[in-house]
Write a protein that binds this DNA or RNA. Structure first.
Lengths: 191, 191
DNA sequence: AAGGGCACTTAATGTAGGTTAAGAAATTAT
DNA sequence: ATAATTTCTTAACCTACATTAAGTGCCCTT
C-alpha cells in the first residue's frame, strides 16, 4: 500500500473509496537534490509528504545565517505551517537534500477533503498535536541542555540522518556554528 | 456569552444545543494563586481554559532549575499536551500565578465531544496548528535572536504580562537567568 | 586529470550570558 | 507592625559558544 495511506492509517481508518478520493486530490512528484520547493517570501499553498529522499525547512537570518527548523525523510510531513494557515508570505525555505519523491496536497484540496472526509480533520489534528509536542520538547531542550547533550539526543532520535546530511545542517538544527560543532565532535570522539 | 464559547466561535460555529452539550462536559473552578493544577510525574487528564487570572506551565531540570514553557491568561488554553496524548507521566507543572477561574475538560469528555460534535475536531485542530506555529517561531527566535531581542519581542507580544508576573518567570521564558535579566533590563532602561 | 568550489577542521581571540555571593527591596505571613 | 520569605539588584569572575581566518580534503564538473 502507498506510504501516505499507511501513514494516515496509523491514526484513522479510511474506506477504499475514501482512499481513492484522497489520492485523487494529491499529486506525486520526483525532485532532484538541491531543488527548492518553497522560498521565503512566498505563500505556502501546499503540504508535503515524503515518500523517499530527504527534505529540510530552514529560514535565513539577516540574509546570511541559515537555521534549520526541520528535517523530513521517508514517512514525514513537512511544510510552512505559518504561511499555510495565515496565507501570508512565510519565512521558510523548503529544499530537497537527497533526491526525493513527494506527495503534494494543495490547501484548496485539503479543505475539500476536510468536507468530504471529516475523519481527515482528526488525522491532521493528531498530526499537529504530535508535531506540537516535539517542538515543545525541542524548545525546552534548547533552554536546558548543552550543545553536546542536544547532539546526543539528535543522534538517538534521528540515527539515519547523521550519515546522510551535511553536518553543517545538523549543527544548525542543534543550534551551534559548524566550527563549534566540528570541535565538539572531535571532543566526543576522543572519549 | 461565556468566554470559552466565544473562543470556540472564533473558528467554528456551534448551535445552542451543541454549546449546551459542550458546557455540560466541562467544569468551571476557581483557584487561588500558587495552586498546582498538575505536577510532573502525573498523567495529564485535563485541558484547561483560562477565564480569568494567570497560569504557567514549566518543567524542573535536575530538580533545581525551572523553565517556563508557557503563560496562559484570559482566553488562553493550557495543558501538558505530551502527557495528555501519550497518557504517560509528563514533565510539566501547571501552576496558578494569579487567582484564576478555569474551565476544565477531561480527556474522556473531550473524546466524547469529538464524537458528538465533529466540528470540535476542527476547532482543536486549528488550535493545535496555531500553537505549533507560535512554538516554531519561538524556537527559531531562540536560535537566532539575542536575549535582548527576545525580551523586546516578548514585551510587544504579551504587554500585559510584564507587570503581572514575577520577572524571574519572564527571564525563564526568554531563556536567561534572573541575574542576567536584571542586568539586561537596567541596560535597556539607560537607553 | 585538473581545477573550482563546497564541506570540514583547527586554532586564536572575543563575547553573551552563566555562576556565585551578598545586600536591598518588596511581599507575605504572624 | 514586625518578622520571614521571596524577589530583585549589583558586581566580580567564569565558560560555552561565536567569530575570524587559514588550511585541508573531497566531490563535482569539464
Amino acid at each position: 500500500m502507498l506510504k501516505v495511506l499507511q501513514n494516515i492509517a496509523k491514526h484513522v481508518s479510511l474506506t477504499k473509496e475514501e482512499e481513492a478520493l484522497f489520492l485523487s486530490k494529491t499529486e506525486t512528484k520526483q525532485f532532484k537534490a538541491k531543488t527548492i520547493l518553497l522560498s521565503a517570501g512566498e505563500v505556502a499553498t501546499c503540504t508535503y509528504f515524503v515518500n523517499s529522499g530527504i527534505l529540510r525547512s530552514f529560514n535565513i537570518n539577516d540574509n546570511i545565517i541559515e537555521h534549520v527548523l526541520h528535517f523530513a525523510c521517508e514517512g514525514w510531513w513537512i511544510g510552512d505551517m505559518y504561511s499555510y494557515i495565515s496565507e501570508k508570505p512565510g519565512n521558510l525555505f523548503i529544499e530537497v537534500l537527497e533526491d526525493a519523491e513527494v506527495v503534494i496536497i494543495t490547501k484548496e484540496n485539503q479543505q475539500q477533503l476536510y468536507q468530504e472526509i471529516p475523519k481527515l480533520e482528526r488525522f491532521f489534528r493528531i498530526l499537529a498535536e504530535n508535531s506540537l509536542v516535539s517542538h515543545q520538547e525541542r524548545l525546552m531542550d534548547n533552554l536546558s541542555l548543552t550543545a553536546e547533550e542536544r547532539f546526543e539526543k539528535f543522534c538517538s532520535k534521528y540515527p539515519t540522518l547523521i550519515q546522510k546530511v551535511p553536518q553543517k545542517h545538523i549543527a544548525s538544527y542543534i543550534g551551534v556554528t559548524p566550527e563549534f560543532f566540528s570541535k565538539m565532535k572531535a571532543r566526543l570522539l576522543k572519549k
